[in-house]
Design a protein around this nucleic acid. Structure first.
Lengths: 231, 231
DNA sequence: CGGCAGTTTGATGTTACTCAATTTAAGTGG
DNA sequence: CCACTTAAATTGAGTAACATCAAACTGCCG
């Protein structure tokens, strides 16, 4: 419990990526914090990254934007996630990041992480497994985007989010805290907000789920899995 | 020129990822070769990988397949490419690999690469930059698939392939050796072969390019770039 | 109460898919 | 070298999925 004393409102520093790195006194000493409002731009593609940023509280998302304004959301980040894992290895952000809700971030100097990689066997494998998970996620996303229908894409996204949320919260009655607007979902699955609304309407009619007041309620998980699982 | 003596028909072992690793006598001694026919299955998702495979000659592609047979091609590999970079870090293939043409492969024991990572500063950064490039590629692919039209997707794919081919061959008159069937292109950009054919027809009519006898000829590169560049 | 952002609904347009037939190209064996 | 076979590419007609445009509706906040 000693690492949480440095970051009271960040319950995720005990485990996973962040926990491994915080094992070093040195890394902790160099840790930096900041708080941002919903909608704030956290990082811009190609910009230099001073620190490796980790999300402590709130939601954020990573995306790539085209010249004409279209954007592809690549991943929604939850507390404990590294906002841009590539910044461990290179100075520049390969994609942009925005805060979806109010967020708190902590930053680690890149050098501290890499030094720690050079020492123990714990840190390098934590970095490797983070990278592999990132790779798997975006690979699956590409597959879903290339091969699947609107319904399947949305089901897939919801299932992924649900498992992420469930890993960090106690879920009762299949009610998930859910701050996304339909515009975000649209940008993540490559559809228009209008069409996202229609698909949600259908799923609601069929008694699969509802969304309101920042809560996603899933009545029929098996049905959703039938639509949205990759296997 | 001493490293090529081990692998006469593989001109790429002098540079890049492969060249860095082959600097070690030990890695060279453990190198294993194999030859496969076009269409051969090189790796299957979740299967254990004995070695880290590098493509010496020919073309291959990496893909993810869904239960109902749909498949997303994630990347076309050219000589010098690691077939599945993730196998440096983990035992199992995260995606499947097939030979597009007849191929020659060489395999390095995972341990040899990782030992070498622990020593010099060259190898870890070679591995890191390979991983980062992989990440960037699949991220761009997801963006193209999510946000772009059929024409844009195909133009993007062609441009990517062209730069890969040009990096390994002398290109005269914008004629690129090109072994892909339209089915491969379809699976890579998330369209049906029929629609791919229509788009090619359009591009041909407009005098942008032609494809025949395993050669892609591009008459109007700027036009193609206008369609298919991400920026 | 009025205004604003987000969602829903309807009508219509476009893009890409499906099915099926035809043409072209590429081998293969005589 | 030429018929025969087979795979790949092209073309056409009809359809389904998703986009676009615009209007109406909802909930929220000052």
């Amino acid at each position: 419990m000693n690492s949480t004393s440095l970051c009271v409102s960040c319950p995720h520093h005990d485990s996973g990526f962040c926990g491994t790195l915080l094992g070093s006194e040195d890394a902790r000493r160099n840790q930096r914090f900041q708080t941002l409002r919903a909608g704030a731009q956290i990082a811009v593609r190609n910009q230099a990254a001073a620190d490796v940023l980790v999300l402590c509280t709130g939601w954020a998302f990573r995306y790539l934007q085209l010249a004409d304004g279209r954007r592809q959301i690549l991943k929604f980040m939850l507390p404990g996630d590294v906002l841009s894992p590539a910044t461990i290895f290179q100075k520049n952000y390969p994609s942009s990041v925005k805060a979806l809700t109010d967020v708190m971030l902590s930053g680690f100097p890149r050098t501290a992480i890499r030094e720690r990689c050079a020492i123990g066997p714990g840190a390098p494998s934590a970095v490797a497994s983070t990278s592999i998970a990132e790779m798997r996620d975006v690979t699956e996303l590409a597959t879903i985007l290339g091969q699947c229908s609107a319904e399947e894409r949305i089901a897939y996204l919801l299932l992924r989010l649900m498992s992420g949320i469930a890993a960090r919260n106690v879920i009762r009655d299949n009610r998930y805290p859910f701050p996304l607007r339909q515009q975000h979902i649209a940008d993540a699955v490559g559809l228009t907000p209008v069409h996202v609304s229609r698909v949600f309407g259908l799923l609601r009619e069929r008694g699969v789920l509802t969304m309101s007041e920042g809560v996603l309620t899933v009545f029929d998980v098996p049905q959703l899995e039938r639509l949205g699982s990759l296997k």
